[in-house]
Design a protein around this nucleic acid. Structure first.
Length: 485
RNA sequence: GGCACAUUGGUGAAGUGGCUCAACACAUUGCCCUCUCAAGGCAACAUUCACGGGUUCGAACCCCGUAUGUGUCACCA
């Protein structure tokens, strides 16, 4: 059996769509599952849409998610160059050859001519299909006109009748009437090929065995087959994948303001989690497993289990998965990842490792860290109603009392880094004064943080802040309560 | 409009004629745990697989039709 070769062929538009990335992932997995070759090819045949630096973004993203390609622009193999704009002469030669083989013809029509014909056909009730008058021009005459410098395009020639069919690994056997196929431009007047032509020439020359692409290409695939057949080339295995949707009606797209891969990373999603999640959009494993490393995906992935219907991108589930990844790492790893975020909001000298221990199980997005630890620098403005807790049976009044009672105990206590001892101390206070634990813990936690919810309870926060700061904040809270009551 | 493809719950989905009065997961709700919030544990959540026919002893799974949706019909990919 032939060695599997797949390719990721993005056009450099400046960012990485989630849908594109998923296609790349599937291509990568299909190749790697069989120990095959994964190729990166840049499709830059649209000169008007070039964006500077876009190619670098593609390299960065692909590398950073661990989908290293075996051949690509910066990793030459034996069928380069891997950038379409560097392969121009080849497309022209093949276009000429295809004309000789009867699969295409030269066309001298202007865009205006086509527009006029379209206008004329309006109201006729049938879908517009360009009827190219240049069909009647002989190859010799056409070449003579080209030699004289006339502008032209090479247009595909489609048989008038009959059907063309192909087999897709996901969608099965598909047949269409040739009469519904239009004669698309293969070589533009600027000498660049269109995608419709370049992809065939390149896929063939790069010996691609599995063509994986979005299912928007399903309807033009018959046209590609006609070209493969005209050249007498082997037709690759087609794997058309369903789209990734934003909701029931809209595809996920940057143009609609939907997040790109880079946007998600900026928002604090882990690359591994994103890749893991998108693998599951349109593909499902045989088992109930949901969390996969790249290596596990390589083993588990199979074309047969790719779904036919569109998948909606559910950010909630991604968020959950991100949290799952965060919880599965060691505190050390988490601490390292969290460090840049700490640096932004924590300027006090505290044990950041303790902070990590407290917030790791509570963090879903790395960006959440900012807000959850901002009280460490200073207590935010808060209303004394925070001291009211129905469940804990606390009120501002009895909280003031509790803080006053606790203060001397905390002043005499010196093991702030011993959570167990501090825990015992605080519950002893409660027992001695014959109140429930919450009556003591809640006021202290609020006094130390000024927040309704905190990563960790009174003990952890006192530990993180240290004795000096803890006492200071409790005194401030007492003053605040006395002033307000 | 022509052509092509699709249609299981709020979401991702499993399911390929009887083991399914539809797995698993997210979300939601309730309970437990608990010094707050999370995390964790437990439980509830589609009598039903877009709809209507048919085939069959038996259908989410096969066939036909309808509806809805998506894609495509560019010198964009």
């Amino acid at each position: 059996m032939k060695k599997v070769r797949t390719r990721f062929a993005p056009s450099p538009t400046g960012y990485m769509h989630i849908g594109n990335l998923r296609t790349a992932l599937y291509e990568y997995l299909i190749a790697k599952k069989e120990d095959g070759t994964f190729i990166l090819r840049i499709e830059d045949t649209d000169q008007e849409r070039q964006v500077e630096g876009a190619v670098d973004i593609i390299y960065d993203v692909i590398h950073s998610v661990g989908m290293d390609y075996d051949e690509g622009p910066d990793k030459p193999g034996d069928c380069g160059p891997y950038v379409q704009s560097e392969r121009l002469p080849m497309y022209k030669d093949y276009a000429d050859k295809l004309v000789d083989l009867g699969g295409a013809h030269y066309c001298f029509c202007t865009e205006e001519d086509i527009e006029n014909q379209r206008e004329d056909s309006k109201g006729s009730g049938v879908a517009f299909k360009f009827d190219d008058p240049c069909h009647s021009i002989s190859i010799e005459e056409a070449r003579a006109r080209i030699a004289k410098g006339e502008r032209y395009v090479v247009r595909q020639t489609i048989p008038l009748d009959g059907t063309t069919s192909f087999d897709d690994e996901v969608y099965g056997h598909i047949t269409v009437e040739n009469s519904t196929l239009d004669e698309g431009v293969l070589l533009k007047s600027d000498g660049y090929p269109t995608y419709n032509f370049a992809n065939i020439i390149d896929d063939h020359h790069m010996r691609i065995t599995h063509v994986v692409r979005g299912n928007e290409y399903l309807s033009s695939t018959p046209k590609y087959n006609l070209i493969y057949q005209a050249f007498g080339w082997d037709i690759p295995t087609y794997v058309h994948v369903p789209p990734v949707m934003k909701d029931e009606h809209h595809k996920l797209s940057k143009r609609n303001g939907d997040a790109s891969f880079q946007d998600l990373v900026k928002q604090g999603y882990l690359k591994e989690a994103i890749v893991n999640y998108i693998a599951l959009l349109g593909w499902s494993p045989e088992t109930d497993q949901e969390i996969f490393t790249m290596d596990e995906l390589k083993k588990a992935f199979s074309i047969e289990r790719i779904s036919k219907s569109p998948a909606i991108f559910d950010i909630e589930k991604l968020k959950w998965m991100n949290g799952e990844y965060i919880r599965r790492m060691s505190v050390e790893q988490f601490n390292e990842l969290a460090m840049p975020y700490y640096k932004q909001v924590i300027h006090r000298d505290v044990d950041l490792f303790e902070v990590s221990k407290a917030i790791q199980p509570r963090t879903f997005l790395l960006n959440d860290i900012l807000e959850s630890v901002d009280f460490i620098d200073e207590v935010p403005e808060y209303d004394i109603s925070l001291y009211t807790s129905k469940k804990m049976k606390t009120t501002p009044e009895n909280s003031l009392e509790a803080l006053k009672i606790s203060l001397p105990y905390l002043e005499n206590f010196n093991e702030y880094e011993n959570d167990e001892a501090m825990m015992k101390l605080m519950s002893d206070i409660a027992t001695e004064h014959e109140v429930k634990n919450g009556r003591i813990f809640w006021p202290i936690r609020v006094a130390l943080s000024g927040k309704a919810f905190t990563p960790g309870g009174a003990v952890e926060i006192a530990h993180i802040l240290g004795k000096e700061e803890t006492l200071k904040r409790i005194k401030e809270a007492i003053a605040k309560l006395e002033a307000s009551l």
